[in-house]
Structure formats: C-alpha cells, structure tokens
Design a protein around this nucleic acid. Sequence first.
DNA 1: TAGCTCTATTTCAGATTTGAACCAACCGCC
DNA 2: GGCGGTTGGTTCAAATCTGAAATAGAGCTA
Lengths: 156, 156
Amino acid sequence: MAEPLTSTEMAGWRAYIESSQRLMTQLEDDLRADSGLTFADYHVLVLLSEAPGRRLRMGELASRLVFSPSRLTYQIGSMEKRGLVARESCPEDRRGSEAVLTAEGLRTLREAAPHHLRSVRAHFVDDLDEAEIAVLTRVFTRLGERLRASRSGVTQ
Amino acid sequence: MAEPLTSTEMAGWRAYIESSQRLMTQLEDDLRADSGLTFADYHVLVLLSEAPGRRLRMGELASRLVFSPSRLTYQIGSMEKRGLVARESCPEDRRGSEAVLTAEGLRTLREAAPHHLRSVRAHFVDDLDEAEIAVLTRVFTRLGERLRASRSGVTQ
DNA sequence: TAGCTCTATTTCAGATTTGAACCAACCGCC
DNA sequence: GGCGGTTGGTTCAAATCTGAAATAGAGCTA
C-alpha cells in the first residue's frame, strides 16, 4: 500500500499508455490521408452500417462510441453536413432522434475500410502473435465489461 | 488479403479500442475529481519530475507525450498560468525553450499521485494477473519501439 | 560572412470537445 | 387530466486541439 504500483506494473502501464497514443496518432494520420475521415467518423460509419436498419438512437451510439452526449451531437452534425448520415426524429419517443447512414455514407465506408484495416494490420495486428491476440482480447473484453458495469452505477 | 482482418483479430482490436477509451474516460474523471488535473497535466508533471534538473526541452517533452508541437505550446502555457511549470529559454540553443517544474508543480504532483495511482490500480491493474501484465508490457513495449522508429523516418 | 537550408517553437484561424444549463417529452401517481 | 421527477438531446460559452504559416536561430558551404 506504500507503493500503489509495483515497478513491473508501472512499466506495463506506461508502455500501454504511450504506445496506445502513438498507435492512435498513426492510424488517424493514415485514415485522414487515405480517406479524409476522422477515427470518430469511421467508427460512426461502422456502427451504423452494422445496426438493423442502418440507424441508431443517439444515446445508444454515444454509449458505444464512449462519447459524451454533446460530443455526439456535434459529431453527427458534422457528418450530416458532409452527407454521410441523416438525422431523423424517433417515432416511438419524440424526445429522441436517430442517426441514419446515407448511401453516400455507406459508399464512403466501403471505400475507406480496406485502407483502414490494412493500416490497423500494419501498425498493430501484424506485430502480434496468436497467443498475444488471445490475451489482449481476453483482457480488454473483461476490462470493458467491468468499466461498463461500474460506470452505469455512478450517477452521484 | 480478401479479408484484411480475421474475425478473431477484429474482436481483439475492437475490445482494445473500446475499453481503452472507457478506461481513459474513467481515469480522467477520477483525476479531475481528486486533483483538478487533466491526464495531460499529470503526465507533464511526471515527466518533468523525473528529468534531470526537473526540466525538459519542449521538443523532447512533446515527443514523449506524443503531442504535436502546437499542442504542447498550448499545454505548457496553460500550466504556466496555473503556476505548475515555468518556461525558460534554453542557453545552448536560443531557438529552444524548456519547461521547468515549479515547487508548486512538484507539490501538486505529490498530492495527486497516490490518488491517481490508486485509480489506475482500481480500474486497470487489479483486473490483470501477472502473466497478463507481462504480455501487455511485452506487446506494448515492442509496439512503441516499432512506432517510434517508423514515424521518425516519415518526413514525406 | 553571406546565402541556404534545416530545425525548434510559436502563432493563427478554425474545428472540436467539454461541462453546465436548458428544453421537451415521458412516466408514474394523485 | 395534471403534477413532480426522470430521461434524451441540444445549446452555449469556454477551453482545448489541429494543421498550416510564420519566426528566429543554428549550421553548413562557398
């Protein structure tokens, strides 16, 4: 308890933080160069393309993207201007609205995906062997579940 | 090559991205609540506190933080206003400047560190066993080296 | 040493992100 | 039906971040 993190733990923690930052920067640069998209743009396109009806409620989208509500409002507004998504108000709940993928958005995603995935492979996945991927998957899946659970109970 | 990422790889990649986002959000929230600091603020304080003379050239600091030059200029300006660091011009190279940790900055770091480290432990490290930490450390250390190397050669 | 090129950092304008209000619509419940 | 207490989203002002100039000094070579 005197030392909240052992030096081994600290080393792992720091490597994780720094490398994650570098990885993101690299992927964002590639994505911008190849497709003129932001990582957030891309992620929105992916989630919408997988959703039934290619549409998702704002709240649902925000929680999957781990975005604050106001950030999502802005993000969708920006993508709407570029014609990648449309905003429709929700029939069941008139407070709500949903983001819908446009044909243009789908086309953009299909064009961007192979480049982006190649970039993810080149900068990250290819560096890992099978066992490492398995560990990462296990660790981060578990972590995600824990964090999702712990935050939903903290309204304060 | 038809499928740039296998479904196993994709699952790992997505879990990593989403959980990392969640983790950062959680840590930032804790840090703000406990100490009124940003993750970036904290990181700057740590790096400066470990540097010889508790000072670092802007460029060096930017590269370790993985910040763009202009972002670092802004970040240090903001911390300067709050009295956490001072900016001094560099004697050997008059183009350069260095950020120096102030006594106030050191005090702030010492006050914040235990809380923050407890938070890192609670939300991340405690969830991992020794073998997992070892894998993460190995993977992300290697990744960091690769990324550092590959980007330094891309001036275009 | 003048001229060139390169490097370190800042400046600038615009885009994004933040947290704190705010607004409307939903949900019991009287 | 109407009143309080949530909930889903948006708005707003302020803070931060970005990439593309602009500055200024270093360093080499003629």
